[in-house]
Every structure is written in structure tokens, then in C-alpha cells.
């Protein structure tokens, strides 16, 4: 097995490039707001960058609420084994 072959992703600098790429795309998508006409069904859809901000907030909310749920729901792996 070629265990120690370094992959492109093993280099932290490359991971950083990906992150910067995502940020650039997000900014680009916000800038794009100025260049097309929205025809949403609801007024809220026409807010600036609505989908982006909704996505960001909802995503964080889901993860953080899910994390809290562990307090109530998490048991050991063999919980159901009698």
C-alpha cells in the first residue's frame, strides 16, 4: 500500500485554496444579484441575497440544534443490545 504518498488534499495550503474558492463563489453569487430580475412568488425572495443568508443561518441552526439534541437522544452504541 502506498500509504505515505502525499495527495493534493494533504497539503493544508490546497485546503485553504478550496475555502477561498468557496468564499469567492459566494461573493460572486451576491454580486450576481444586481444583474438579473427576480420574480419570486413571495416578497421575501426579493430581499438582497435572501437564499444565501437563509441557507447560511438555517444550516448553522440545524447543526447546532442537532448537537443539542444529543443531550436528550444520545445513548451508548449497544443501547438496544440486551
Amino acid at each position: 500500500m502506498s500509504d505515505d504518498k502525499k495527495d493534493w488534499l494533504d497539503n493544508q495550503a490546497n485546503v485553504k485554496k478550496i475555502i477561498i474558492g468557496v468564499v469567492v463563489i459566494c461573493i460572486g453569487l451576491l454580486v450576481a444579484e444586481f444583474f438579473y430580475h427576480k420574480h419570486g412568488h413571495f416578497a421575501i425572495e426579493n430581499w438582497f441575497g435572501f437564499y444565501g443568508f437563509y441557507g447560511f443561518i438555517v444550516f448553522c441552526g440545524i447543526v447546532l440544534i442537532g448537537k443539542q439534541l444529543r443531550k436528550f437522544l444520545m445513548r451508548s452504541e449497544d443501547y438496544y443490545d440486551d
Binding site: 459566494c26 444565501g52 441557507g55 447560511f56 444550516f59
Partner: peptide
């Protein structure tokens, strides 16, 4: 709009 939703989720 769909790309915004998804890319900002990745950002999150």
C-alpha cells in the same frame, strides 16, 4: 438562488 442556498450552506 439555488446556488446561493447551497454555496452558503457549504460556507456555513
Amino acid at each position: 438562488t439555488q446556488l446561493q442556498l447551497l454555496m452558503f450552506s457549504i460556507l456555513a
